[in-house]
Design a binder for these strands. Structure first.
Length: 258
DNA sequence: AAATTTCCCAACCGCGTGGGC
DNA sequence: TGCCCACGCGGTTGGGAAATT
């Protein structure tokens, strides 16, 4: 019994892809697309690979618009802020970042961002006693060697960030997200005037990116995250949240924390 | 210089979901 | 209506590269 395998593992090649295989896959997909059927595609392309493996190789590596490595401060910020709201919905997070794949974002978070935050936490001993909502300086600046005060500020967000509840997402799909083709903008996603993501979400009718266009991305400004929005506030005050460039997350009030 | 450890990322695995029949 | 199949996703692993001892 059990689940039937997607392919005959004895008959397919596994492990790293050779340049020849990459070229075969690339040329086939560019000429024919996946044909809507990844399972049958390897055979047509002359590849001894599982269809799932072909799909993954194409999506994560061979696609022409893929960027690898070299995450910018702005991308760090977007990842952190979206993770604080969505949890480990890597495909959704990656969809907001031009040229990034879910696998890339996931790896980057697991190997770098999370560790940096943990390191920041290790430098302070008043992790959770912050009486008010944590307000942290723009993260990328603090990812470098940090003064104690900055490390403490970052550490204060860890309980929220590293214990993000899983947010049920069944009620919406990627198609529900009005994500324009345009990629990551230079502006930080949240206002420089100290408003929080929660307050931004509350001002539902505000064209956020337009009104706060003079944002602080890449500059010296201070960037505030309100990780309280990741918790019980989610989707309660309003039913949506506007991100830069019109990104619109329909935070369905029926979403529940599990 | 060699051995060992740590880091990073490509790839794999298994499950949930949705469409087609 | 229920079953089957393929897709897409998130979690995990394996191995090469880099760093350290």
């Amino acid at each position: 019994m059990g689940r039937t395998p997607c392919c005959d593992k004895a008959a397919v090649k596994r492990g790293p892809w050779s340049p020849e295989e990459d070229e075969a896959l690339r040329s086939y997909v560019q000429r024919h697309g996946s044909g809507g059927n990844w399972i049958s595609m390897p055979k047509k392309a002359g590849l001894k690979r599982c269809g799932k493996s072909c799909r993954l190789r194409w999506l994560n590596y061979l696609r022409p618009d893929i960027r690898h490595g070299g995450f910018t401060d702005e991308e760090d910020t977007v990842i952190i802020s979206l993770y604080s709201q969505l949890g480990s919905k890597w495909s959704l997070i990656a969809s907001q970042m031009k040229g990034r794949t879910d696998n890339d974002v996931k790896n980057y978070w697991n190997t770098k961002l999370k560790k940096r935050l943990l390191a920041a936490a290790a430098t302070t001993d008043d992790l959770v006693s912050t009486p008010t909502r944590p307000r942290v300086p723009r993260l990328p600046a603090a990812l470098a060697p940090t003064p104690a005060s900055t490390a403490a500020a970052h550490a204060s967000l860890l309980p929220s960030l590293l214990a993000i509840p899983t947010v049920k997402t069944e009620t919406y799909t990627c198609d529900d997200f009005l994500a324009p083709a345009a990629g990551l903008q230079d502006d930080d996603p949240f206002a420089a005037d100290g408003s929080t993501s929660a307050s931004a979400a509350s001002s539902a009718s505000t064209n956020w990116s337009a009104e706060n266009g003079g944002a602080v991305g890449g500059g010296e400004g201070t960037f505030f995250l309100d990780f309280g929005a990741a918790g019980s506030d989610l989707g309660t005050a309003d039913d949506h949240l506007q991100l830069p460039d019109g990104y619109y997350y329909p935070l369905d009030p029926s979403l529940s924390l599990v």
